[in-house]
Design a protein around this nucleic acid. Structure first.
Length: 160
DNA sequence: GCCAACGTTGGC
DNA sequence: GCCAACGTTGGC
């Protein structure tokens, strides 16, 4: 069982959009980066858990989701006129892939990036690395658990 | 808006 | 294959 973090600009697709989707499930489409593509296509497995991260405005981890469908071709790349159209990708030879995720929970209080930077157990997290841009990132099990504990209010003494 | 970090493109 | 130029991401 692997753990992941998915990054999105809430202006494009936010956790509220996922929450409002039928069955709280939506395709994670539009990724156009090869490293991220490889993880979507090959490494993310059914039942894997995923941290949902908002970038740019109020950056932070805002919820938990799970993979409910493994990698399959991102058909938005075939759609001329679609924002993420890419003529190099075809149904015969798809270039880009996506997974479906379902929302498990939206955190009552999001964990701000600037707070996460203060947590010693997260010091080596990819998200916190300077210049980290990957929109699909693996998360170590330990880091994942620490974040869930923080989101659930464990070890908050004196901080609120 | 600034700018550092990163990925991609394309000339050679 | 190298690498400069360029475009994008994303924190601040």
């Amino acid at each position: 069982m692997n753990h992941w973090l998915l990054k999105t600009e809430p202006g494009a697709f936010s956790i509220l959009d996922l929450e409002a989707a039928p069955d709280r499930t939506a395709p994670w489409d539009g990724v156009r980066n090869y490293q991220a593509r490889n993880m979507l296509r090959d490494a993310m497995k059914l039942g894997d858990r995923v941290l949902f991260y908002h970038s740019v405005t109020d950056p932070g981890v805002v919820g938990l989701a799970e993979v409910v469908r493994e990698g399959y071709p991102d058909h938005t790349a075939w759609d001329e006129g679609h924002e993420h159209f890419d003529a190099r990708s075809t149904p015969d030879r798809p270039l880009w892939f996506m997974v479906d995720i379902r929302l498990v929970e939206r955190f009552a209080s999001p964990l701000a990036l600037k707070f996460l930077r203060t947590v010693p157990d997260l010091a080596n997290m990819e998200l916190l690395r300077k210049g980290s841009r990957l929109s699909v990132q693996p998360v170590r099990t330990r880091e994942f658990e620490v974040i869930l504990d923080l989101a659930h209010g464990a070890d908050r003494g004196g901080r609120e």
